[in-house]
């Protein structure tokens, strides 16, 4: 279980997040939604202890997050992974990153590790690219490689920051289908997304964020009034049929 307890984060005197207080039960498929600048990515970075909260705390399995993260791996797929397209890593190297912490200093990856990584690449539909340099992969293929890395970490939790960025609609559906399978297999998934239509089909729990918390509920309870409250009047809900 993940608990956000009266969490606030400010830069200088500007509040990025204010009094965030909610909990995520195990085996939920959580979507965090909100307009640009709502503090969604900041919330994820605070959860991953990449940022320090101004006040409040985050507990993972009842342990402060920074302590929990020292002892456990967490699967993370960032919004935009910063990397050099000429970096000499293959897709397999990137997935093996999720297993690196389990190896002591000086130890190399063995065939058993490569088998685990390849199974994850297959699950994400990109096994054929295992020996491709990352600079040769498309945006969608690279996102799937990053998902495979998050999977091999073996974490109960998968944290994804706009995983659909740079993927076409067909690719998004495929991506969320993989996430749904992982959810069914027992993973707790937390994803930031703008794609409300896709989220409504796959997610079990919604968190509406715009500096403060506007709702945290089962997805079926969400109505257009809450959406408008979160996004302001800039959003119009339209039924889409694919």
């Amino acid at each position: 279980m993940i608990e956000f307890k009266n969490l606030s984060y400010s830069i200088d005197s500007t509040a990025i997040l204010k009094d965030i207080d909610f909990r995520i039960a195990d085996n939920e498929f959580v979507a965090i939604i909100g307009p640009n600048g709502a503090g969604k990515s900041t919330l994820i970075k605070l959860l991953l202890a990449l940022l320090e909260p101004s006040s409040g705390e985050i507990l993972i399995d009842a342990i402060p997050n920074h302590k929990w993260l020292k002892m456990n791996s967490i699967g993370y797929l960032p919004q935009k992974e910063i990397y050099d397209r000429h970096f000499p890593a293959t897709a397999l190297d990137i997935v093996l990153m999720g297993l690196a912490a389990s190896l002591p200093l000086g130890k190399r990856f063995r065939q058993a590790h490569r088998n685990i990584a390849e199974a994850a690449l297959e699950q994400c539909g990109v096994l054929k690219h295992r020996n491709s340099l990352i600079g040769t992969l498309s945006g969608g293929e690279f996102q799937r490689v990053l998902l495979a890395r998050a999977i091999v970490s073996g974490s109960h939790y998968l944290i994804l920051d706009e995983p659909e960025a740079g993927i076409d609609q067909k690719g998004v559906e495929g991506f969320f289908t993989i996430l749904k399978d992982l959810h069914v297999a027992g993973k707790t998934i937390i994803t930031i997304s703008h794609d409300l239509h896709t989220l409504s089909k796959y997610c079990s729990f919604l968190v509406c964020l715009n500096v403060t918390l506007h709702c945290h509920s089962k997805t079926e309870l969400l109505n257009s009034e809450v959406i408008h409250k979160t996004f302001g009047d800039t959003i119009q809900l339209v039924d889409k049929h694919y």
Partner: peptide
Amino acid sequence: IWLFFKELFYLTYNQEIARVYRIK
């Protein structure tokens, strides 16, 4: 380089992400 090869490799790739994945 022999002892820290994988740490150096992932540090060079992306230090922040390497830290998330608990690489030293």
